Simulated assay, not measured.
Amino acid sequence: MALVLRSVDKNGKVIERFVEVQHVPDTTSNTLKESIDAFIHFNELSFSNLRGQCYDGVSNMKGEFNGLKTKILNDQPCAFYVHCFAHQLQLALVAVAKDNVDVNTFFLLANNVVNNIGASSNRLLKDIQSFEFVFLLFLMKSILGITNDLSQALQNDDQEIVNVMALVNTCEEQLLYMRNYEGFDLLLTKLNDRFNETSTELLICLASLSPNDSFAAFDKEKLLCLAQLYPQDFTKQDLLALEDQLDIYIHYMRSRSDFSQLQSISDLAKKMVEKRLHQVFQYVYLLIELALVLPVATASMERAFSAMNIIKSSLRNRMGDQWLNDSLVVYIVKYVFSCIDNETIMTRFQSMRSHHGQI
């Protein structure tokens, strides 16, 4: 099990960082919850500070009664669950490929082309020269081109959930222009089914924080509703103060040219810190922080497992858990260690215990 923590630093920047891989005997929700509890306790953290959780959609993770998300929500009701957006996109595309006969046949033929490249096959050559195959080739290129932009955006570890929601809507709008083909209605249906979480109260309220088009999406009532979803962060007195602060906040933001071109709440957070407005509008900034810490996708965890295949090679297949974790951290977040020179590392290693010679 890979663990990744997401937070907002003092400069308003989103930090999503791999922490460790934990060895678990099985993947039941009870075992995973016990491992997370042990991690929280060992690192002297607290569930009281947890505001979001993100996994794929398997039953042991998102089950309403015994899933891991439910067990964590029982400890911390404000740790809102987000089904990995990248996983939802993949499920929608795979479902369309299976349910549409023409698309399914196309991918079977494409797979045969890859597997039989260089081999002589008159039947295969005839199939890929047919009008149906060439038409579907260009069609799927267009579809996957549209969804690829969304897929690539979901790989960014500092991606924010409000921006992703906008990208999903843009993807659906682009596909609407191409819906004359019978498979498009199915694709749009699958996308709507998979991304139905974007219609939940939490995400609808979050959209009101967007600074796009001079804060066109701003909605005071929705932002007050958003604050009410976090009773541990906003007391009744805080809500009253927030109600007054929102009027001043939106008037100030719309009257300043340096805030008119912002494209995301991540940009908004950094700009507010730069101008020290996070101290002036502290309740609004808290809402922005809560929005930014919500995870979007599990791409960071997937990259951790990919890195593990590189680190734990056939020549190093007896690595212990601690050595593996230490190696993974250095490899995955190498940008953190890039500023440390070799002399400092050698001095640290030399001081850990006595050595026969000087390094």
Rank of each mutant, 00 (worst) to 15 (best):
S59K: 14
L203I: 14
V58T: 13
R51N: 09
Y181T: 00
D185L: 12
R17Q: 12
Y335L: 12
D267K: 08
Q261M: 08
I311D: 07
A216M: 13
F215Q: 07
N60V: 15
H355N: 07
V329N: 13
L328S: 10
L136K: 00
D233T: 14
N169R: 14
E64V: 12
S300P: 00
V134D: 08
I72G: 00
M346P: 01
S214N: 09
D37V: 08
L286K: 14
L224N: 06
D219C: 07
R51C: 05
D56R: 01
V168S: 04
K71R: 15
R17N: 10
D213T: 00
E343H: 03
R123Q: 11
A2L: 01
L176K: 15
S306M: 05
L328R: 10
N156G: 02
S306F: 01
L175E: 03
L202P: 02
Q350S: 10
S120R: 13
N111F: 01
K236T: 15
R303V: 05
S35N: 01
L209Y: 00
L137Q: 13
L292R: 01
S300F: 03
L324A: 02
A207L: 05
L139P: 01
L93R: 00
K71M: 15
L109A: 04
L50G: 02
E243V: 11
N104G: 02
